[in-house]
Write a protein that binds this DNA or RNA. Structure first.
Lengths: 225, 225
DNA sequence: CGGCGGCTTGATCGGTCTCAAGTACGGTGG
DNA sequence: CCACCGTACTTGAGACCGATCAAGCCGCCG
């Protein structure tokens, strides 16, 4: 349905980089055991059903966790920004796929090494549990959004979240309208219309489609409920 | 919107008990440290914002994890059946509330005790991580359902899941149409209509509103996609 | 028998999707 | 520098699925 090419390996154009470095609480020791990898925009980092050999942390750029239906319908369950861990699974196989929203750099740690380390060091075990249960909490918030909120409420929540996660008043969206739509359970047309309407009302300022600022947070928060 | 009384403490009527005992992989040691508690139907087990003092495991009956919006809109993020753990949080406070779908019995374990035990025993730490990351996987599946599936697809997925989690061909639903609607992001009318329609097509058999059997799993699986 | 909660059924409404153009922008090659 | 192109995005008109509003029914318990 959404013709997102999983082509990879275009030469990475190095552009503006927002979302650079806020670390989430993480197992510091793990990072020493990791390797850095680069992925081009839309490149797949791992696929649903593949063996969960590694766990990952975003260094720069953005990553999306994705579930697909056979007919192409897509749901993005989370966007991962620099400092976020992703790909931690209970199962031996990945239950969803992850790919690069923009050109990005990730830290890759062997799952076995991580688990062995968790076994020995309570600190690492606690950090992994904290990351996972925080993600679960976010997932539950997102379910409320997907199950019960209107289009404008979804967009408001999304924009406020992106504002919170970025630093500074200016938000640079790393993802396309397709990605936003598939994250919020809407169509690109509805996303576009709603954002345009918010801009028309003066609640947000637009500078092109990927760059915006929040002018009236109160109005948005009212919708976020 | 949904006038669900959080009244508790009616004398528990002891009825038929399905979903009795399939344990999920769990930290065996933890259970020794727990106490049993009974809750009446619709009683609150813990509320959003309360301190996360305990973690819980369903012994009998069913429990729902709930998020509420100020105006009363409700999203049930999960149903917990016997053997399932719930209430494990990264934060010090609960980010959602949990209440009894039916009269039920739960095992209650001090969070501090559990965390201390996890610190000492890798086995317990691993089990807690496994439970949480499995829940996260289920949450992501559910997001796909909430974001991208039609009403009949949602109902089909729900019924197949309930069939899988119960033993035997007969499904005894512990929850009301309100609960199902708030779990699937639909209204009770749509839930009712869709179930009636499936019964009319002969895909399922109905015996009252809470008891049903799957007659044509293939038809349902086709919708589950 | 009466009442009430939970469920079903019907009629209509409306928000979002779908289908269809049209526009803006970034990159590429002349 | 500009013409061209493709991709991403916006905008419009109309259709449709599920929500809403409104009865009515069923089963259980008093």
């Amino acid at each position: 349905m959404h013709p997102i090419a999983t082509t990879g390996h275009r030469p990475s154009q190095s552009g503006i980089r927002l979302f650079e470095s806020r670390d989430e609480a993480g197992p510091g020791a793990l990072e020493l055991a990791g390797a850095r990898l680069r992925y081009d925009r839309n490149a797949e980092i791992f696929g649903e059903g593949e063996e969960a050999e590694f766990i990952y942390k975003v260094i720069s750029g953005a990553v999306r966790s994705v579930k697909l239906l056979a007919d192409g319908r897509r749901q993005i369950s989370a966007f991962h920004l620099p400092g976020d861990w992703f790909g931690i699974e209970s199962d031996s196989d990945h239950q969803f796929s992850a790919d690069a929203v923009s050109d990005c750099e990730v830290l890759v740690v062997s799952r076995n090494a991580a688990m062995a380390m968790a076994e020995r060091e309570g600190e690492v075990a606690r950090a992994l549990l904290a990351i996972t249960s925080r993600d679960l909490g976010r997932a539950r918030d997102h379910m409320l959004l997907l199950g019960r909120k209107s289009a404008s409420e979804r967009i408001a929540a999304f924009l406020l979240d992106m504002a919170r996660r970025s630093d500074g008043a200016l938000i640079q969206l790393p993802m396309s309208r397709y990605d936003i739509a598939d994250y919020l359970g809407l169509t690109i047309e509805t996303v576009s219309r709603t954002i345009t309407e918010m801009s028309r009302k003066g609640w947000i300022g637009l500078d092109g489609s990927r760059r915006l600022s929040i002018r009236n947070p109160q109005a948005l928060r009212q919708l976020d409920a």
